[in-house]
């Protein structure tokens, strides 16, 4: 939601980034204020996923130009863990499995690590158990998920719920949801979206990275941005998503490039 006079959470200026020498982001600008929900849409290969990984600090991507400020602080100087502690959260498109580590153990370790860094109290296993069970209700997750290994044998929907559960625990200032809707059936999509909506408030901000408009029926964005060829080429309100759904991406990209529309069948980075 747009609040008058709200603070800027994320400020991206002229961001260029490459992976293995190939430039993917080519001068991206984006401003996100507290309370807002932004959707970044775009065809496969437009750089959406790269952008989310660059924000979270993935070492495979080299930032070659531009700046990224989180609440005025230079994010690009920080390793991924410090970005997380500063309030960046990335919900992964493909969360990893960690056989041998109980979910409860993992969640508590990440929670306590981040709490300590923020100068707050850690929770012991019993206190944490109560705390996490309460958060799990948001996502209609059974307590069984605590005893299982992290994401091991979880369905696509269960993994995404586990991602949003971590977001609920870590209370980020900026949450980036990378294709959170992919692989979800309607019920799972509803549950995950409800969880996200409950977590959104006037002090944090959400960036939804998505290929399809579907998710935006559940999580209504204040701004919709279209990415193409490593840049944001169009920004509008939530109605832009509907227009993209009806007309596809080509008309936006073509106008921007002033060239013939390209085939949108590249595999996402």
């Amino acid at each position: 939601m747009i609040y008058p006079g709200s603070k800027t959470i994320l400020e991206v200026r002229g961001l260029c980034a490459s992976v293995s020498g190939t430039e993917i982001l080519k001068g991206l600008d984006l401003t996100v204020k507290s309370g807002e929900v932004h959707a970044i849409m775009g065809p496969n290969g437009s750089g959406k996923s790269t952008f989310s990984k660059v924000l979270a600090g993935h070492s495979a991507y080299q930032v070659t130009a531009g700046s990224v400020l989180l609440e005025g602080k230079n994010l690009l100087d920080l390793p991924p863990e410090e970005r997380a502690r500063a309030g960046v959260f990335l919900a992964f498109q493909y969360p990893i499995e960690i056989p041998g580590v109980a979910n409860s153990q993992f969640l508590r370790l990440t929670y306590n690590t981040v709490q300590t860094q923020r100068g707050k109290e850690e929770l012991d296993p019993l206190e944490f158990d109560d705390f996490v069970r309460e958060k799990m209700k948001l996502l209609e997750m059974s307590p069984d998920f605590l005893d299982r290994s992290v994401n091991e044998g979880f369905s696509g929907g269960e993994k995404k719920r586990n991602e949003i559960l971590q977001m609920a625990l870590l209370e980020p200032r900026l949450a980036i949801l990378d294709e959170t809707d992919s692989g979800l059936d309607i019920d799972a999509l509803r549950i995950v979206s409800q969880g996200v909506n409950k977590l959104a408030n006037k002090d944090n901000a959400m960036v939804l990275v998505t290929h399809y408009q579907r998710l935006l029926n559940y999580i209504v964005p204040d701004f919709v941005h279209v990415m193409d060829d490593g840049r944001i080429v169009k920004t509008g309100g939530k109605e832009l998503a509907l227009e993209l759904e009806a007309r596809g991406y080509d008309w936006v990209g073509a106008k921007h490039r002033g060239a013939a529309p390209k085939v949108v069948a590249k595999v996402a980075a």
Binding site: A56, G57, P80, E81, I96, T113, V114
Partner: peptide, 14 residues
């Protein structure tokens, strides 16, 4: 390295 990055993105040091 993807697994390491996942955990780092949750606040754990390398």
């Amino acid at each position: 390295s993807e697994e390491v990055f996942y955990l780092q993105s949750r606040g754990l040091s390398d």
